[in-house]
Design a protein around this nucleic acid. Structure first.
Lengths: 361, 361
DNA sequence: CCCCATCATGCAATCGATTGCATCGATGAT
DNA sequence: ATCATCGATGCAATCGATTGCATGATGGGG
């Protein structure tokens, strides 16, 4: 016997244990039921069981229900791995959370997208394989697909990986990315209209009479970059000069976020409004302002981005640019499937709107 | 030929395409490399390739590196599914997010645990299969394991599923659960010391001179239930009677959270402090209080639970009971493996401390 | 009453890798 | 020079399911 015998029981048909729904704890070491067992007990071949369970029209109704019942009563489930090996397709989508450092992911918005994705993927009857990678892990992403673990990838956190993602796309790795659509992207992108979002936020602040509007966001990230463009456009339309000192980089979800904010505030620059590229930053900022007895919105108006749950709950409620999280998951999954199918690449721009609350009026 | 021929190329050895790292886009339809291909090109058998790639001592160093190099240069990866089918073990852990309704998960704390889990699982070189289920899906959890998709389960959001989880444990499903350790639990649990947390929070408020302390939390959930016990104990020790009107249920992450809070506040009850079972509730509450011009902490002191990132950033910074998210993932994974190994069941209680900030002093 | 179409089911190859045992050649001891 | 030994590698079975084709049974038409 070439392979280690795995305690295969003698071919005695019809194990005495017919169905033990009420005997918990007693079946620890029992060998896992497999298709041939069901076949034997039903008096048919494995082929028939396979066909019956997968609803093939070759099997008459009566037989099918008999087998299905039997399988259920024995709590049999087809081995997913074996099936997908033979069928040559995987029912799993890889989701990659990209993060700057080894630091934990903490932005509720990104995690919210993940939640939305989970629902969308499950809805398709597929599974979601989650992993968190760092900037340099193009190879890991590639091998997830090429080792047949997943059908394709959904990437959250475009960051500065644009080039790597392009390479992967050229290799024919099916994927979809949450982020900003860059002009030379070869991969499909889902995101809000960042430029519009930045524009709306800034124009709104200008309409409130603000002139010295600070921009908080890391413009090396495509999303923040486009938001800045919108910001700059609104400023230009209003004939306001951009002051580089009012443009500050804070990383999304940086644990030392508050420190950086305090550092900036300590410069005592002259400003009457702030547009922050994430609600977490904005909320944190409002905390810092209150500590210094700077009133929001009367002295400084604040606008955030994302519209996370807490944005409407803090005081004053935060004006923000809403990104419709709930739609994000579905959109990403759709594009991923199109990418698998080889449909021409397209992007999805989610509706982007300014939610005006008290922090800015 | 019994099975649909899958465009297998003629057995011509050494395909001309040796290594095309710089030829993106040109290889769309190429058949996926497999072990026998590598074997043929290396002039050895598949057995040798398999052994070389898995680092078996049977293969001499020289051969191993030769084969490894070749495989890498061709970007070959072993098919994970086939390998785990043959080896009979899966490198995947199932993570289940349980949620009350079909509503999206939004509590940053729970999502944070998920992040922590992702890291812990990846650290072990395993994969994480994520799915979101509703209360009734005991069966789905069972079949994830029994269909061989995952080695075991990690469950986030114990909710009111205690009985179901017990059944699964009795069936021998390896798992670990984030939540509260109930006396008759047959499954391993990781969580903070909820009773202690509730006690510390309440005692602290009493020490600040509060007498009429409201408790916000759904005590049908084991975690909140134990926190309430701690709360009650502290009250009793101080000789303060519990007022049932000061005990209010709000669901974690309920989208209508703010509404419920407003409804409660509208009752104009007499209270001088609030202990909320989640930071999101606490922060939301502080927003509502400020809107009514009730000052925190001078008129009402507030303590939360979780210590999410924003807790320290809002104003006033929130006093809260810290649950060490970063340790949670590792602990859950550890217990899951013990559950697989059949080690006697144990729980892990994470260090639980009160972080005093300005909202309560 | 016979033949052939139709339906139900089984056989055996196959997915891509892993691994116990067999084999073959080289080396060292006698 | 001979044989035992050891190291390197290959053969073929196996993991658990799927599926093209073959086969056997059934029934209707001529």
């Amino acid at each position: 016997m070439p392979t280690p015998p795995r305690a295969k029981p003698p071919a005695s048909p019809l194990p005495t244990v017919a169905s033990t729904p009420a005997t918990p704890g007693a079946d620890k070491g029992r060998r896992r039921m497999q298709m041939t067992d069901i076949a034997r007990m039903a008096g048919v071949s494995a082929s028939t069981v396979s066909r019956a369970l997968s609803g093939s029209p070759l099997i008459p109704e009566a037989t099918r229900t008999r087998i299905t019942e039997l399988a259920r009563s024995l709590n049999y489930r087809v081995n997913a791995g074996a099936a997908s090996l033979r069928k040559g397709d995987v029912q799993t989508i890889g989701v990659v959370l990209l993060s700057d450092s080894t630091q934990m992911i903490s932005d509720p918005f990104l995690l919210g997208i993940l939640g939305s994705l989970t629902d969308a993927v499950n809805e398709q009857g597929m599974n979601l394989l989650l992993s968190r990678l760092h900037e340099d892990s193009k190879d890991r992403m590639r091998s997830m697909v090429e080792s047949g673990q997943v059908t394709g990838l959904i990437v959250i956190g475009q960051l500065t990986l644009h080039e790597h993602l392009n390479e992967l796309a050229h290799l024919g790795i099916p994927m979809a990315v949450w982020g900003a659509a860059l002009p030379d992207a070869s991969y499909p992108v889902v995101g809000s209209d960042n430029r519009l979002g930045g524009y709306l936020a800034t124009r709104h602040l200008i309409e409130q009479g603000c002139r010295r509007i600070a921009f908080f966001g890391d413009t090396t990230h495509p999303e923040a970059g486009q938001r800045f463009q919108g910001h700059a456009q609104a400023m230009e339309e209003a004939g306001i000069e951009l002051d580089p000192r009012l443009r500050q980089h804070f990383l999304f979800g940086d644990a030392r976020l508050r420190e950086s904010i305090d550092g900036w505030l300590n410069q005592q620059l002259d400003f009457d409004a702030i547009f922050a590229c994430s609600d977490v930053t904005a909320i944190s900022l409002m905390g810092a302002l209150r500590e210094r007895n700077i009133a929001v919105p009367s002295q400084v108006r604040v606008v955030g981005y994302d519209d996370i749950l807490l944005a409407s709950h803090v005081h004053p409620p935060l004006t923000t640019v809403r990104q419709p999280i709930a739609q994000a998951g579905r959109a990403l999954v759709d594009l991923m499937f199109e990418s698998v199918a080889g449909t021409p690449r397209r992007n999805i721009v989610l509706p982007t709107e300014l939610i005006v609350r008290e922090s800015s009026v």
